[in-house]
Design a protein around this nucleic acid. Structure first.
Length: 563
RNA sequence: GCGCCCGUAGCUCAGCUGGAUAGAGUACUUGGCUACGAACCAAGGGGUCGGGCGUUCGAAUCGCUCCGGGCGCACCA
């Protein structure tokens, strides 16, 4: 017999069959589009799963929900999984799953190992995820950290859900901001500091600018990507300064990201879009499309024809392009690289680019679907230090860098903290709390569960292979059934997180899994005299440890054996 | 003024495509280490889900509106 572990889809199929019998005209095979929703009730007394189909059918069938429920149950095919069925409340059908069916999950997890939780939702399709994409004009700050944590975790979740994921970073290494950077470094080289009356309004004021200037003057060599850039020390050579400063800051960002455990598959440079003609090609295509016009010595794109609230300048009156043009060229390039799905993870302060980029892509008339690409926007991070909000301003040089957080709070806790919230909600990062009372951080609670299990298994000292022989039929206490059900839920969590592009769901799931384990731990002994009971319990907690390990891996957080 | 996001326990936050009595953590009160790690567990109090109207058998969830907060509204990125 085949082992069913995905109870939700199994039950969904059973009810679909029942529906075809009870009300064929409303089933999916008929003209109807009735969705079969199987949910997990909050209360254990309401069963393991519940179906509200009868209530949905009440109106179209003009019958009482409870009567429909009765008919559905009568028409439901037999299944080993179902212990019993109940009609409750207004017409819920509550399903109680047999303990035997749940117990299978232990061997399922142990056999699948790191593969438990991998599903086929993505069916191997390509998805390109762009995240962080910070300008090389300064160190990465907390906001970038959130983007890095959310983006990287999202990629891991999508990978687990069966997508072929490419992580991508886009460098805006051209344009006005880089000019400002260059000028700022040059002034520093000449001994002019931000408090000087000649310091430009748009100049960068952070101390790191002085570091860059000193390195340039000292003719240091910077290794960034595949190139080695040496500072010439020539204060008047703006081009050399620009080249050096960008390389210097890119290296700093790369080091920070590496320390944060985030790695990219592809780095794209804005400057390359100019040098290899992709910007020009995009402009030409847009002009040819007939959606552009000249006004006030500038070239405009009629983005209002594609939902934007005002038209956008493409080529400024000074002859240079706005950032928007290479952005469109860049996305056209992504499309051509075969990414029928692209997700851009960015800070919400850039949300206005969404309509613009999509409009530009539509204007190209390149067969790109409306609404492409997808976006995940994370809201702003507020940093609290000494109970006061730290204002972050790159130009003023007021900073909470990602590096600071990693050094002071630790990589695991920082990643967890930044990824464990819905991207849509604003995040308050209390540095003092995270630093001084780091034990309060839920990441330790989860890691502790893993370490505890490791300690018990080490004390047992047996071969991991032996656990596969465990008689899981002995697992039937309330703590054990709760843990079994939690392990069964894991693939569903991956699916939801992937569908909703909401990696924080994994973090919350892990907290609940850890809680189930800790309760079990305090209520039961594992290393008991009865060999069969001992093996069964160890198999269960080993499975729990495996799922904690798998889930933490998605978050980029370690699962230590000791702490 | 226009657009996007948010408003849930004192605080930090969950709540899956609308479902049954709204949940965690923290803080507070109490109890549990001569048992595999107490970075843990158990119990208790704490709520007009910002307000109102609407759709629905059923709304924290969907729609409208008002209030409050954040972020955008450049020939910057």
């Amino acid at each position: 017999m085949s082992v069913v572990l995905n109870f939700k889809s199994h039950l969904s199929e059973l009810f679909a069959q029942a529906l075809r019998e009870v009300a064929p005209e409303l089933s999916k095979n008929g003209s109807g589009q009735t969705e079969i929703l199987i949910e997990r009730p909050k209360l254990a007394t309401h069963g393991d799963y519940a179906c509200s189909l009868a209530m949905q059918l009440a109106k179209p069938l003009r019958k009482a929900p409870r009567d429909i429920a009765q008919a559905l149950i009568a028409a439901l095919p037999e299944s080993d999984v179902i212990e019993r069925l109940e009609i409750a409340g207004a017409g819920f059908i509550n399903v109680f799953v047999t303990i035997a069916a749940k117990q299978h999950v232990v061997h399922g997890v142990l056999q699948a190992g790191a593969g438990y939780g991998h599903i086929h939702l993505g069916a191997g399709r390509k998805v390109g995820v762009e995240f962080v994409s910070a300008n090389p004009t300064g160190p990465l700050h907390v906001g970038h950290g959130r983007g890095a944590a959310v983006g990287d975790c999202l990629c891991s979740v999508l990978h687990a859900a069966g997508w072929n994921v490419t992580r991508e970073f886009y460098y805006n290494d051209a344009g006005v901001q880089i000019d400002n950077l260059t000028r700022s470094v040059q002034l520093r080289c000449m001994g002019i500091a931000p408090d000087h009356p000649d310091w430009p309004e748009a100049g960068y004021r952070g101390d790191y600018i002085a570091d860059v200037a000193n390195a340039y003057l000292a003719r240091e060599t910077v290794d960034a990507d595949d190139q080695h850039v040496q500072g010439s020390g020539d204060v008047n050579d703006a081009e050399a300064i620009r080249h050096f400063a960008v390389a210097y800051l890119r290296r700093e960002q790369d080091l920070d990201l590496r320390a944060f455990g985030v790695n990219f598959d592809v780095y794209s440079l804005e400057s390359a879009l100019y040098t290899d003609g992709k910007v020009k090609e995009t402009v030409d295509r847009l002009i040819a499309s007939g959606h552009t016009y000249e006004q006030d010595d500038a070239l405009w794109l009629r983005t209002t024809a594609f939902g934007d609230d005002k038209d956008r300048v493409m080529r400024k009156s000074d002859g240079t392009y706005t950032y928007f043009v290479p952005d469109v060229a860049y996305h056209l390039d992504k499309w051509r690289r075969g990414f029928t799905r692209v997700i851009n993870e960015q800070g919400a302060d850039h949300h206005s680019t969404i309509t613009r980029v999509r409009a530009g892509l539509q204007a190209l008339d390149a067969g790109i679907p409306q609404g492409w690409p997808d976006y995940v926007l994370h809201q702003m991070v507020t940093v609290l230090k000494n109970g006061e909000e730290v204002k972050i301003s790159k130009r003023a040089g007021s900073y909470v860098t990602l590096r600071d957080l990693i050094d002071e709070v630790g990589c695991d806790a920082t990643r967890y903290f930044l990824a464990a919230r819905h991207p849509d909600s604003q995040l308050v990062f209390d540095i003092d709390l995270a630093k001084s009372k780091s034990n309060d951080n839920p990441v330790y609670y989860i890691q502790y569960a893993h370490a505890r299990i490791s300690a018990v298994l080490a004390q047992w000292g047996g071969e991991r292979h032996a656990l596969l022989q465990a008689d899981v039929g002995l697992l039937d206490s309330e703590y054990e059934t709760a843990l079994l059900q939690r392990l069964i839920d894991y693939p569903q969590v991956i699916e939801n997180a992937a569908l909703e592009l909401a990696p924080h769901l994994v973090a919350f799931y892990l907290k609940e899994l850890a809680a189930d384990f800790h309760s079990y731990y305090n209520a039961s002994r594992f290393l008991v005299d009865d060999a069969a009971v001992k093996l069964a319990r160890l198999a269960l907690i080993a499975a729990a440890a495996q799922v904690i390990h798998n889930g933490l891996a998605l978050l980029g957080v370690g699962a230590p054996e000791r702490m």
